[in-house]
Design a protein around this nucleic acid. Sequence first.
DNA 1: TAAGTGTACTAGATGTTCTAGTACACTTAT
DNA 2: ATAAGTGTACTAGAACATCTAGTACACTTA
Lengths: 124, 124
Amino acid sequence: MLITIDYQDKRPIYEQITEKIKNLIVVGVLTENDKIPSVRNMAIEMSINPNTIQRAYQELERDGYIYTVKGRGNFVSPVTEWKEDRLTDGLNRFGELAVELCQLGATKETLYKRVDEALVSERG
Amino acid sequence: MLITIDYQDKRPIYEQITEKIKNLIVVGVLTENDKIPSVRNMAIEMSINPNTIQRAYQELERDGYIYTVKGRGNFVSPVTEWKEDRLTDGLNRFGELAVELCQLGATKETLYKRVDEALVSERG
DNA sequence: TAAGTGTACTAGATGTTCTAGTACACTTAT
DNA sequence: ATAAGTGTACTAGAACATCTAGTACACTTA
């Protein structure tokens, strides 16, 4: 089972699916040109309607994370398709979050430490 | 007009209201014991149903940002009520975001720089 | 007493989400 | 050629959250 759905989560199913697959791609579990499960297979495996899977896949394609070949299936896109956007968005959120944390009294050292820890965990 | 609603935003109205008021409190525009507009006034001013405002205020009270006095109105809570939780949650998100940004190739210097900028903008 | 306040409740409209079913075009393997 | 597997498109309806509308009651203050 590649993905699990949290039915307590108030977000719609298709959104949970897109988010989790995006993460699998960003982390590197799924890499360029990997085939992801077909709409029907994923639907059966997760006991979810195929239309819901289809919608999730459409969003993934729209955002550049996968590409679709009719009759063959869905495949993971090259990193270049999404890396830039994700980095830009992430840095913006990072900056905004840093401002708020400073307003809440977080020290420079605290934030630096978190960054250092992130660098370590990323190497491992 | 204290708050404006973005009807293009897919999030529900009551959620937008709670988020914006939270920000006003965190930033310091609204401070301890300030009275916020009554359910009815806010509803008229924003051309929104009073029930929607009420729901937003209930969430704000549940999260500790305001307190309610029957017959008098709603007032901003002391910072101590929400500061700790918000700092903890924020630092967690900060750490997770840092990990992802590192995986995307962000350098230590880039993230440090964003933190420094945040410290500067917070002083101003 | 009157005005303003929070709170609770019912009822209904609206939009999104999800399911169900069907159909068609394409690719691959046999 | 045929069958199986694939993506895609469409209609229909159920289920749910959101929002509006209206009413009512208890409380506080002037």
